[in-house]
Structure formats: structure tokens, C-alpha cells
Write a protein that binds this DNA or RNA. Structure first.
Lengths: 133, 133
DNA sequence: AAGTAAATTAGGAATGATTCTTGATTTTGA
DNA sequence: TCAAAATCAAGAATCATTCCTAATTTACTT
């Protein structure tokens, strides 16, 4: 019903996100985009991230740490989240997750599977290196 | 450091949860336990659910819908969440998820995997039955 | 059974991420 | 240039969850 119009703010948000591989949160996007739009509001950032995600231009990640993260890479891949520092990075799971990903479109116990979520958590290489020695 | 003492409230919370297979939220537990403890506070419910989860007596489910759910079944299994009605039910994924579950304890790209999260979403049988016909 | 230190509770305030509301500003097509 | 529709900034509102404090329970010890 509602046509999507261009906005400079949305372009800046998309541009910033595309330049990152660290899966920023809405607040990280907000802080970054403020250098270009000092008066942009957090609500605008949230609304545009939601819109971009709806349109499939970016992906919204819910990794259970209470904050949504956003990913410019919408190709099918998985993530690893460090329980210690919170860093999120891409994970090449390949065959490990292929099985569960392949359930989309199938029926299980009468329910129609539309998609799946799979990710790993633990301690990242950086945090491991700082433990004790 | 702090010894865990018995509390009637915690026992009631555990007892209620054990009687359920629908993965209640903290608020659902709160409402239910109030019939036995009319003055119990929501904070008490949250604190005890967290304590029970920490002790491994129950499992905390984070299925990305913004609310934590709790499961008396701590054996390894997976879940399906209906995008329409929000219902959560057990899913017998077996071999489908075995691969990703098996990553625990392994190293990937230098990171130590402690665990994984995997679940499916879609439309449950009940909601499918009510669509149109 | 009384005494007491430590854990737990009720109640409510505080937090934090996200969404909503409103009047002003931009965008877009005619 | 005009006007309708979408978007914006600013801040209030929401909602799940956590934190704080004084009063109550629990679990020893005698």
C-alpha cells in the first residue's frame, strides 16, 4: 500500500552497514551515521533497518544476547558469537548446518517449516589468547 | 560462594513448569504460581527461573521473539515456533541437527565452540488448518 | 525450642532495547 | 511549482528483565 520513497538517511545507513563485517547493532549504526547526520534520531535508524530487512536488502540477526544485529550479507551463512566479548563473526558451517537449513518448505508433524536459525557460541580466538598467559 | 537455600516459591515454580510441555514464559509462570502464592513478585519468578536454569534443572529458550521461555526438559532436543500464534513445540530433528550440535568442544577458526542454537519457525498445524477453509 | 547468620522474598524503582506518536520536512510525480 | 504521501526528529511509551531494600525464611547451633 505504502510506496517506499528515497531518503538520504536510509542511504547512509545502508552504506555504513555495507562497509562493515562486524554485524553492528542499531545503536552502533546510529553512532556512526551521526557523523554525517548529526540530528538523525535513533527511531529513524530502527525504522530504516527494519525496512531494509523487510525488503531483504540486509539481514537481522537475533543471537540471543538481547540486541538485534544487522548484516549486509544476505547470502545463507551462519554466525559465531563470543560469550565473553560479544563479538559476532561469520562461520563457515557448510555441511554442519546444511541439514537443518534444508528443512525449509518441508512439513514436520503437520507444521510447515519456513526457515531455521542456527548459530554457535563460545570463546573467540582473541579472548582465548588473553586468558592467563 | 552463596549457598542455595530451599524456598517454597521456587518449589512451586519448578512444579508448575514440570507440569507443562508448552514452554511457558516468565509471565505465564508468574500468573500460574499466583494461585498458590498470591503475593509472589515477578522478580522472584525471574530470579528463580534464572537460578534453576543456572543449575541445569530447567532450560532457558531464546527463540528470537523477544521473550525467554522455559523448558523442564533439559535433554537435547529442538523446537519449532509458530510465526503466527507464537506456540512453541518440541521438534524431533534427530540427524538434521546432530551435525551442528556435535560442534561443541571443537575449535573453528581458532574459536572454541561451547554450544549451538538451532530451531525452526513457520506455521503450525493448527494455524494452517484455520487458513481460509 | 530459642538464637542467629545468610539466603530469600515482596514491592517497586530502574534499565535498556525497541516501538510509537506527532507535527515539521522531504520526496516525487504531475 | 504544487500537493499528496512518505519520512523525519524528538521524545514519550512499552515491555521484558534486572536491581534495590527492608522484612521474612531457612538452616544451623546450642
Amino acid at each position: 500500500m505504502s510506496a517506499v520513497k528515497y531518503s538520504r538517511q536510509r542511504e547512509a545507513i545502508k552504506r555504513f552497514l555495507t562497509s562493515r563485517r562486524d554485524h553492528p547493532t542499531a545503536d552502533m549504526v546510529y553512532c556512526a551515521v551521526r557523523s554525517e547526520f548529526p540530528h538523525i534520531s535513533l527511531g529513524t535508524v530502527y525504522r530504516n533497518l527494519a525496512l531494509l530487512a523487510e525488503q531483504g536488502e540486509i539481514a537481522r540477526l537475533r543471537l540471543g544476547d538481547g540486541v538485534d544485529r544487522f548484516d549486509p550479507d544476505v547470502s545463507p551463512h551462519h554466525h559465531f558469537i563470543c560469550s565473553q566479548c560479544g563479538a559476532v563473526r561469520d562461520l563457515a558451517l557448510g555441511q554442519y548446518a546444511a541439514a537443518i537449513d534444508g528443512l525449509s518448505g518441508k512439513r514436520i508433524d503437520g507444521s510447515l517449516v519456513r526457515g531455521s536459525v542456527a548459530y554457535c557460541y563460545g570463546i573467540c580466538a582473541e579472548c582465548l589468547g588473553q586468558e592467563k598467559g
